[in-house]
């Protein structure tokens, strides 16, 4: 029984950690939907956002103000990207756009470090990374408060975004733009404000993901590498699907933890580093378009 409990614990911890991958993946999906660009810089955006947030806090801004200022900053970054990088590259091949966003990632990482310094910052959200007592009492499971909060915050954000896209005029506009930007703008859908909204949403998602990770491991450059793990998540979930990003994140989170705990010791541990990618390869062999992605049809 205790072994089973332990298994559940591992899975739950994995799922909750997976929501953080989901959040980063969600940022990718948002931009992909709106401007059909694979924004490789999303990981750098996570780092840029949370480092700026911590920087503003160090200036003495209150939590909420710092949060809002950072989001405004991210929206600005997004607009600049749209205007200066993506617009001149319209109609270029997907690979070219991808390279450009890799470049953008470097710009953001460099700017963040030049502005705020390179040392590891601590981020105290007032939520401890230790098990919650009443859950231990009632079920016997050891589940970290930070994991639980991250899971709840991620779930709230995801539901809010899903509602926004499903039921508002803006969301309808976004879906039209995702389908065919030319047709959408010709019937009077304001491309500019749609893009602003999408980049702001991606910025919020990046900031929240960064805050959760930063609270656990410190705000540091390694966040960029962690965010790379959102790539296998996207492979599993599909690039254009919000539910796909969520479920992909959960699958990666849980599988990686289970493998690490039960299989890792036979191989000297630390297989978390590559297990998600190998998992993604197996998924690719089975379903190249991801769980929820649209089927890719290619013609000569």
């Amino acid at each position: 029984m205790t072994e089973f409990l332990f298994f559940i614990e591992v899975v739950v911890a994995g799922l909750l950690a997976g929501t953080m991958y989901s959040l980063v993946a969600l940022g990718f999906v948002l931009i992909y939907k709106a401007s059909s660009t694979f924004n490789f810089a999303q990981g750098a955006m996570v780092f840029f956002a949370v480092l700026s947030f911590v920087g503003f806090m160090e200036w003495g801004l209150p939590f909420v103000v710092a949060f809002l200022v950072t989001i405004a900053l991210m929206a600005l970054v997004g607009l600049a990207t749209e205007r200066l990088v993506l617009k001149p590259l319209r109609n270029q091949s997907e690979d070219t756009l991808l390279m450009a966003t890799i470049g953008l990632g470097f710009v953001l990482e460099g700017l963040a470090q030049a502005a705020w310094g390179v040392e590891v910052r601590r981020l105290d959200l007032g939520i401890g990374d230790f098990p919650i007592q009443w859950i231990i009492d009632s079920t016997g499971l050891f589940i970290s408060a930070l994991d639980l909060t991250a899971g709840l915050v991620a779930a709230t954000l995801i539901i809010a975004l899903a509602l926004l896209f499903k039921y508002t005029r803006m969301g309808l506009g976004l879906r039209a733009v995702a389908d065919d930007p030319g047709a959408a703008s010709s019937i009077g859908i304001p491309l500019g404000s749609i893009m602003l909204m999408v980049w702001t949403a991606a910025g919020i998602v990046a900031l929240v993901a960064g805050m959760m990770w930063g609270a656990r491991a410190g705000v540091q450059f390694a966040l960029v590498d962690l965010a790379l793990k959102a790539l296998p998540v996207l492979i599993i979930g599909g690039f254009s699907s919000i539910p796909g990003a969520i479920i992909g994140g959960l699958i990666i989170g849980a599988t990686e933890k289970v493998l690490e705990v039960y299989i890792g010791p036979f191989f000297g541990g630390a297989i978390e580093g590559w297990a998600p990618y190998v998992l993604a390869i197996f998924f690719l062999l089975w379903r190249p378009e991801g769980l929820f992605g649209e089927k890719i049809i290619r013609r000569v």
Binding site: L89, T96, L97, M99, G103, G105, V107, G110, L111, Q113
Partner: peptide, 16 residues
């Protein structure tokens, strides 16, 4: 850090 920024900008400029 500035080196990173310049690299990034160069890549973007070359792509464009």
């Amino acid at each position: 850090s500035i080196e990173l920024v310049v690299f990034g900008v160069l890549i973007i400029l070359f792509m464009i």
